[in-house]
Design a protein around this nucleic acid. Structure first.
Lengths: 270, 270
DNA sequence: TGTAAAATTGCATACATTTGCATGATTCTA
DNA sequence: TAGAATCATGCAAATGTATGCAATTTTACA
């Protein structure tokens, strides 16, 4: 798992112009500034940089918390924006980005296409964004995707049956794989747990890998939907090389530097 | 403010290099992030990447689970996005009666049974009321039923694939019927559009009739779930004679006079 | 300007939380 | 069914918190 550890070893220079006698209000403003700037502070850090006792800082932070200016936590304080932005207002992580991806994916759909739509929240967004006028035949393994697609008047939905995985609410197992072997779709839209330009597409789960292999085999062209946060991460089991992907869609501009390592492969980047 | 004192502005640059001290909230946020991103995580992976002990991660995940932010599983955690896809429709007609029927139906389930659950709101209630401790293997054609069943920890769900009917969100067509022909379950719980002691089970829709015939054929015993309002009604296409039903469950007391016309058939009435 | 009330601050103390480790129980897996 | 992995639990050390108190500063008001 690639957690980008370095991001958290953030060397924070807290440079404070401290006045010999600082009013309580000034001090609190300084604390707020620090919190907004770094999203989080430690009480001990603040006490040291403002040269007051930890108790004073604690009282200040307590007061600011009571006034809803920040959120006090054990040992420190964190910005309100930090929590309200990153805790799930909606249930789906990075929904905006996924919608952006789904919009691009929808744009390559043609009238009358026969496609496969994978499970996962990004593919679910794709299903949501299919315009009601578009006529399609969609295969899927995912219960939520099938539910969503079945509300589209001009989409024929075919569910690939099999044992339902409780985790991901998709069909898995030999039966599903066998059923997949009997179809051939124009486009297959898939997600992945992890993707790396060298290591290809990888997953946490062996069963899922078997399934995705079958999906890729049953498609003329495979489109990978993947938010940029997953780029350059790998896990245990390999689904396919990056070459097996015909089109890769992220929420980034196609020119973005983060995508450079994928350019020398034969992939269309959207 | 005292001017004399302000004259002594002591400009002190205090530069603090803060080493990684991650607040609990930040850590939990990071864990949530990982879960949402990859749908599932391993405690060991998280512990390693955050450089804390496995115990700490376990406690965090436990807490997040208690707060309904994710679901803890053995060895890791999975995203709620998948499991809490609430299919809870608010307006189910005659819900009370259907719950009563479903309760009776649940009472005849035995540990380890292999059953089929039909679509429709009554069968959906049955799916809801299956106790979490009961171990079952359930076949179904219905997307909502499959979603509901997939939240039951001890139920193995197998979805019979096929083209999805937009009206009823169930698999229909030749493929579904063929798949049904290859299974044999202990009990099949079915609904019906219309039922009459003489005319048997009938439907408005020819496709549905074909499907139900296949369902009945694939079951050792067939249990009909039916609210009393449907008794003594008929329609165009016939699914089966009333004799094909082994057990009939309504919301009424078994002794109720409305059920009299069904008594001379070989049906158990609950 | 003088004085009393109120607020602020740092300190000491007792209490609470967090964390990693050790242990044995439980669950998974081959 | 045995061995490995994971889990629950209790414990101790470190860290953070609440509280009362006294010294000091600020404010209110005559």
């Amino acid at each position: 798992m690639n957690l980008n550890k370095t991001a958290y070893y953030n060397i924070a220079y807290i440079c404070v112009i401290s006045v010999l006698i600082m009013l309580k209000e000034e001090r609190q403003q300084t604390i707020l500034n620090e919190v907004e700037l770094h999203n989080r502070i430690l009480l001990t850090d603040i006490a040291e940089s403002l040269d007051v006792s930890i108790d004073t800082v604690r009282r200040d932070v307590k007061e600011l918390d009571a006034n809803k200016k920040l959120r006090k936590v054990h040992g420190g304080a964190i910005s309100l924006g930090f929590t309200t932005n990153s805790t799930r207002n909606t249930n789906i992580y990075a929904l905006d980005q996924k919608i952006k991806i789904a919009e691009k994916a929808v744009s390559i759909l043609k009238e009358g296409s026969v496609i496969f739509v994978d499970g996962g929240t990004t593919c679910l967004e794709l299903a949501r964004l299919i315009p009601p006028t578009l006529e399609l035949t969609c295969f899927t393994l995912s219960l939520p995707v099938a539910m969503e697609l079945s509300s589209k008047p001009n989409v024929t939905v075919i569910f690939i049956g099999g044992q339902i995985s409780k985790d991901s609410q998709i069909s898995i197992g030999a039966n599903a794989i066998h059923n997949l072997s009997e179809i051939k779709v124009d486009y297959s839209f898939i997600g992945t747990g992890y993707v790396d330009s060298q290591g290809g597409l990888t997953e946490f789960d062996w069963d899922i890998v078997q399934l995705k292999k079958a999906v890729i085999k049953s498609a003329k062209k495979t489109v990978l939907l993947c938010i940029s946060e997953k780029l350059n991460s790998q896990h245990r089991y390999k689904t396919c090389d990056i070459n097996a992907i015909n089109t890769m869609i992220t929420e980034l501009e196609p020119e973005n530097q983060l995508l450079n390592s994928f350019r020398n492969h034969d992939i269309r980047i959207l």
